[in-house]
Design a protein around this nucleic acid. Sequence first.
DNA 1: CCCCCCATGTAAGTAGTTACATGATTAC
DNA 2: GTAATCATGTAACTACTTACATGGGGGG
Lengths: 185, 185
Amino acid sequence: MALEHAILVSLLEQPGSGYELARRFDRSIGYFWTATHQQIYRVLKRMESDAWIEAREVAQQDRPDKKEYSVAALGRAALSGWLHEPIEPESVRHELAVKIRGAAFDDPAALIREVRRYRQAHAERLAHYLAGERRDFTGPEAPAPLDDRQELQHVVLRGGIAYEQMTLAWLDDVIDTLERLGARR
Amino acid sequence: MALEHAILVSLLEQPGSGYELARRFDRSIGYFWTATHQQIYRVLKRMESDAWIEAREVAQQDRPDKKEYSVAALGRAALSGWLHEPIEPESVRHELAVKIRGAAFDDPAALIREVRRYRQAHAERLAHYLAGERRDFTGPEAPAPLDDRQELQHVVLRGGIAYEQMTLAWLDDVIDTLERLGARR
DNA sequence: CCCCCCATGTAAGTAGTTACATGATTAC
DNA sequence: GTAATCATGTAACTACTTACATGGGGGG
């Protein structure tokens, strides 16, 4: 149960409305924690009634008004407490791995097409990460030196980049294996 | 919703009871799909009433009797249908990444101890995977050549190994970064 | 006029977790 | 006797997903 904490981090980085949070969970923080707008609004309500966050009505021209949330003292305390808790091992859900093992009881070669499409999606995500890294951390427009917040965002992004590179290499391995099994039939 | 399918794959690899499935979800298939025994029993009931699987009462000596499940024709068909569906992108939940970004608003150096412990857990998992790989696929006791099922299990395990190696390298990067930020205060 | 973006929600259902419960057998 | 393993479940709760709903503004 860390959606609350992901929201706290995002609101500390930048206060915003439920809608804006939902956008961030499609990119940025969404690269390592996903949530839909329905879930976000529900959790925001709970967090507000627990006084973890405070809402401020913001009137806007040319677009609907919004409620801008920011982190209150209790929210900061809750985040701090959570940060000091032990890091729990992640519970893994890797659908493709199940499919690959399941392919032994169906047609391994039939998976190749889907794995290629999946690989393409990861290649695009890697390119997106690398562009973001140049823009925010390593390119000529990036601030130097980076402050703590930026250093920590950068090391998380490096993790995403490493993950995508590893995944692409493994998917090549998977495609080779599936092709080899198809050829020997 | 792939627990059903993970169970189908596991039962095709080897029929077994709910209890045995729960054990497998602690290792083997559990490396890429987790489930508790409560959840497994619930889903097994549904799968049996949908005629995806069949139960057989097995009397045992020295231990309680059990219900051994195996995959029925409808279950095989359901698995085959699922295998041909598009591979959906995984929804990411990476608590440590949230904590690292959150540390910017607390004490980055305080995370180091927990990250080291977390790294240790991943190092052990990698060692476990490598031992399993030698035992089942690359060692002198392993069958050669491998059949389709073993080749596919092996490529999935190689994915797990690659993931752990990548994770260890990234965690070293994280620890370095946290130490650097601690030192410059 | 229709579609897209901004903005916020409700309702219903599915999936997953945590706590509790039972009962047999084996090992110390 | 008491702890551990085998074996199967119920109950209550929390988290998450999917579908539906509303309404203003801007662009083609």
